[in-house]
Design a protein around this nucleic acid. Structure first.
Lengths: 229, 229
DNA sequence: TTTAAAAAGTGATTAACATCATTTTTTCAA
DNA sequence: TTGAAAAAATGATGTTAATCACTTTTTAAA
């Protein structure tokens, strides 16, 4: 259970994180940001935004995890990204001036701040460093997704699962990975049953430890080896 | 064979295209651009840049087609994007300040201009509209790639091929699609043999017409139907 | 025009993975 | 604490698509 006091954190908590896009703001800008954001406690599995809706602002994750996903023809989710503390979610569609083509939902109880579209765009217009940071971020994600596509096309499910576990470990550390089998399957891009069978294999091979929902990587080297480059 | 005179086109030819990122430049900026770009005729299958190399500038396609691809573990190409006339290729890695994570190569004889990194970045710094256009473009591509990933994960090869043919038709029109079976397979994300068999099916179902390398879509409606949403 | 080489096409076989049906375990609210 | 619902796990089966081995056709260079 998340401490309720998290509901009123200062922005600096978030901005000090190594992965924060807004890390380079000056004191004035930070206090301005403090005045323009609203902070909310989100329950587990609560939606931040839906595919097809218009963006009205961005979400800054102070505490918790958020899945960004797209639904395929039959409604099955494909998880594109899992965002953690310090990340900003939902700003991509704002630039494209189109509706969201993905949806976002909390994976656990989370503390998330909201910055209205205009305030966010203002910040960007007046801050070249921030702008560059965002362009850099967009480009990096584009690169990530090229790799994602290539992995989906060319790697086996076993290889992709190994790859996913390495990624998830980094996202969740120092906590154990904590995802439902279905979400994990939707991240790897496979059927839940197949994922469960492969997890069992990895467990038996001593690569991971599983305690119901929670799992930890015990042999990252081997997993990286299985995942391929 | 491409007319040699294409080697010395004016930028306005490119910029007038509907898909041009640089469409919004003013007269001064265009003439400045004319002075800073160099134009070259590229042979078929000529490399623009390699995965792992540092970006030194961007490529503006005046005439021709370029595949943007990534190699998987075993060297197999996954084509991420096929760029046509008017598109700018190779600017994403410039923002991320990292090496290219994809490679680019002409699919046919092409006329392509080169703009050095500094000149391009200068243009962006001094032109807010261009900057916004680029951010918009990056965001749109991010959305495209989320769909690409979801398609790879959830659609059958037959569905993906139908989808690819619809895309390729738009890229190549008014010309017929002109891609090797291998390239097409690497775009769809399948084995060449599988692609060939499915093309045959589509041909027999009257959805496409094939003349050796060249093919045209004869029943787009049905293909869209097969592709799914 | 001829002829290597590359690309396209075919057939047989196999492996990976999805799907469906069902059981077991875990979770969580009454 | 209990019982119903959700999630996880297991087994059997079917399908898709990869792989391999080979033939035919097309391309492009001598």
């Amino acid at each position: 259970m998340l401490d309720k006091s998290h509901k009123h954190v200062t922005c600096s908590t978030c901005l000090s994180r190594s992965n924060s896009l807004l890390g380079g703001l000056c004191t004035d800008e930070v206090s301005n940001l403090e005045n323009h954001r609203s902070c909310n406690l989100f329950k587990k599995n609560q939606s931040l935004f839906l595919e097809g809706s218009f963006p009205r602002g961005v979400f800054c994750i102070n505490q918790g995890k958020v899945k960004v996903f797209k639904r395929g023809d039959e409604g099955k989710e494909q998880i594109i990204h899992i965002a953690k503390e310090g990340e900003i979610v939902g700003f991509r569609a704002m630039f494209s001036e189109e509706v969201y083509n993905v949806a976002a939902e909390t994976l656990e109880e989370s503390n998330i701040c909201y910055i209205a579209k205009d305030d966010f765009l203002n910040m960007i217009d007046t801050n070249a460093a921030l702008r560059n940071g965002i362009m850099k971020e967009l480009s990096k994600e584009l690169a990530d997704r090229a790799s994602f596509i290539t992995n989906m096309a060319q790697k086996s499910v076993r290889e992709r699962l190994a790859f996913a576990l390495i990624l998830l470990e980094k996202i969740y550390e120092p906590e154990p990975i904590n995802l439902s089998r279905e979400d994990m399957a939707n991240f790897v891009g496979t059927a839940t049953e197949t994922l469960i069978r492969l997890l069992k294999d990895f467990k038996e091979e001593g690569l991971i430890e599983v305690h119901t929902r929670k799992m930890t990587v015990t042999n990252a080297k081997k997993l990286i080896d299985i995942a391929g480059k």
